[in-house]
Nucleic acid binder design. Sequence first.
DNA 1: AATAATATTTAGACAAAACTAAATATTTGT
DNA 2: ACAAATATTTAGTTTTGTCTAAATATTATT
Lengths: 218, 218
Amino acid sequence: MTLSEEDYIKAIYHLGKGENTMVSTNAVAEQMETKPSSVTDMVKKLSEKGVANYKPYKGVSLSEYGQKIALSLVRKHRLWEVFLVEKLDFSWDEVHEVAEQLEHIKSEKLIDQLDKHLGYPQVDPHGDPIPSKKGEFKKTIKKLLHEIPTGTSGICVGVKDSSPPFLKFLDKNKIALGDTISVLEKEEFDGSLYIRIKESKIHISNQIASNLYLKITA
Amino acid sequence: MTLSEEDYIKAIYHLGKGENTMVSTNAVAEQMETKPSSVTDMVKKLSEKGVANYKPYKGVSLSEYGQKIALSLVRKHRLWEVFLVEKLDFSWDEVHEVAEQLEHIKSEKLIDQLDKHLGYPQVDPHGDPIPSKKGEFKKTIKKLLHEIPTGTSGICVGVKDSSPPFLKFLDKNKIALGDTISVLEKEEFDGSLYIRIKESKIHISNQIASNLYLKITA
DNA sequence: AATAATATTTAGACAAAACTAAATATTTGT
DNA sequence: ACAAATATTTAGTTTTGTCTAAATATTATT
Ligand SMILES: [Mn+2]
Ligand SMILES: [Mn+2]
Ligand SMILES: [Mn+2]
Ligand SMILES: [Mn+2]
């Protein structure tokens, strides 16, 4: 597969939410930042190649084979993201662009060894699961911190309230996107939480907890 | 620069031996495994872009700017080779093909951090020097082991005699391409050498030493 | 059900990078 | 110096991936 074909396959995969859903030409065009006519051309070719199933005017979905390619690309992308954060001190928001390039490097040994070098990580820096070599992975869900049960942990992936006061509060308490947070204990009385974040334990109100999104493995 | 342009720039650089020599169309074609007519087209374009100086029927050389690009590519290529060997347990002869792809990844931060992660290596697994960010590097030369002075060290890069008996000898004594060898002492009487190779010290005859090529930084 | 709005495809063009075959320039050998 | 051999360029195609403009299909609205 060419670099371009691979990016289309990934786009179709992500727009179909990993399921084998039909996606529209326009949706792919928007995702890829190209024109719908270019998408038509490409999905025709991918269909010829047996990677996708294209029904004119109806949309496109990945074939079995296409799914495999997509999962392999997602695996590479996310492993590289872990590498960049863990080994090269990249931050959460800097990795995507570079991983978008690295995912296209062709070498099976490279990925196997990278996986090993990283200690076989299960999730990427955004809390998204890393498919195994065979394409298996755990689903993850996004939940508000105050909704998740005591004992579980997840990666902070977003805020519901993005007002300056709230963001300032997070900053002051050293809570950042990409941090792993575990719920240690819940206070029945006011719904406040004791959480662990980067080795330190802190106490936060229910109001804070209901404005922070975590990604947890289901 | 596109991937293709970058590979042409590197080819011109290497054929010109790093000096600003004029290189023939045919030579580039052979190196790149393309046809001379394709080379003509490309070097015209590189000249337009100010990367190279092309004189019809006379050949092509890199401009100042082209040299800079070439050195940056060589730097990336060799740093990735070190990464593959040091961190991912690739062997000497497996790295080139993968580095050929990785060298084209666009991210300044990626290379700076990779350099740091690897401890700012000076040479790649083949004993070739790694240019600094500014493009400076030490020249290396290839010499027979018995020609180099006591106290110096280098990387084993080839054999003069490639007969099975000699290769078998190297195997038995665990001397392999890519190994770092230091000359500890020379025996005046028979010209035999005491060398260090991978933490162990061994004694080899002058005849062995005169059939092993080392790459040393001049 | 007819019309308007939107989505999608088709047709035709373009740039990048390669190729083959033919033309032309340079170098070599006598 | 001239012919033969070799190197290089030119001309004309091809493939991949993109685009714009126009045509056609689908969906939404009245
Ligand atoms: Mn990509
Ligand atoms: Mn990610
Ligand atoms: Mn390359
Ligand atoms: Mn090398």
